[in-house]
């Protein structure tokens, strides 16, 4: 689809405490749990840049950057 925005999902595993809020609130399941229940990218293409994950992450561990 032309003009579709793309996003970079930046996860800082040093800060992630595996609370699961980011992927619980991700509406498209672009992110999900890794083996230790930490945040991990499942499918970056699905990211719509809604920032739900970023806003709910209490640990400054996930940030979404729009790819220009």
């Amino acid at each position: 689809m032309a003009g579709k925005k793309e996003f970079l999902i930046k996860i800082n595993l040093d800060f992630c405490k595996a609370c699961g809020l980011c992927y619980s609130y991700c509406p498209t399941k672009a992110i999900g749990p890794d083996k230790e229940f930490r945040a991990s990218v499942v499918d970056a293409d699905k990211c719509i840049g809604c920032l739900q994950c970023e806003n709910y992450c209490p640990d400054f561990a996930i940030e979404i950057e729009e790819i220009k």
Partner: peptide
């Protein structure tokens, strides 16, 4: 992208709050 780092003392992170603690959201 919002630059949280600008306002944080990064060397003090990760913070002491429990996993999923709402304090971090606030």
């Amino acid at each position: 992208m919002f630059d949280y780092a600008e306002y944080l003392r990064l060397d003090k992170l990760p913070h002491i709050w429990c996993y999923g603690c709402g304090n971090g959201i606030i």
